[in-house]
Amino acid sequence: MASIRTYLQRIITKTCFMHPRVYNSPQIRNSSFHSSKFLVDVEVNTKYETTKNPEEWKYVERLLPVTTVPEPKKLPVYASGWKPQGDDLKDRPYFIARTRNHMMPVYLEIRQRGTARHTIIKKIQGDIWQLEKDLRPFLEDLLKPKNLRLQVNEFAGKICINGDHVNAIKYWLGERNF
């Protein structure tokens, strides 16, 4: 209501004469930071009850996400095709750790506007050169007449292979229980 009054005041002062006591009074706009008063004594009149029901609280807890990635269910066979990592891998010369989402760390990198495809194996621990030795015959057999272009990054624990061999390498690693 006050805003309508001040709006009308402004129109009236522009169009006709007004007494100084009227047009000199300060404009109060409650939506303006500058002229609105501080909020004092807000009375909450709505009736409400505070309930503590463990049954209802279970529904609230269902809505909150977990903090860490849970361990997968232990099934004999997974219909989605996912294979868990083996347990007795401490004696292996090398080890390819799973990602935090329990997936294999084999990625396809596409560069040069789609013309260059590289397969990258990450998270390699242990003797990376032994892994390269074991991988070579398998990959060379796949490519047969073509050459295999492979790069080992010992410091970062990565192997980069030219071409898209993601599924082949995942199969090879799965055979060895990684």
Partner: peptide
């Protein structure tokens, strides 16, 4: 309903 996560309480209107 208003859910208070800190006090683990649900506020329900009675109006």
């Amino acid at each position: 309903w208003v859910v208070n996560l800190k006090d683990k309480v649900i506020l329900k209107p009675q109006d």
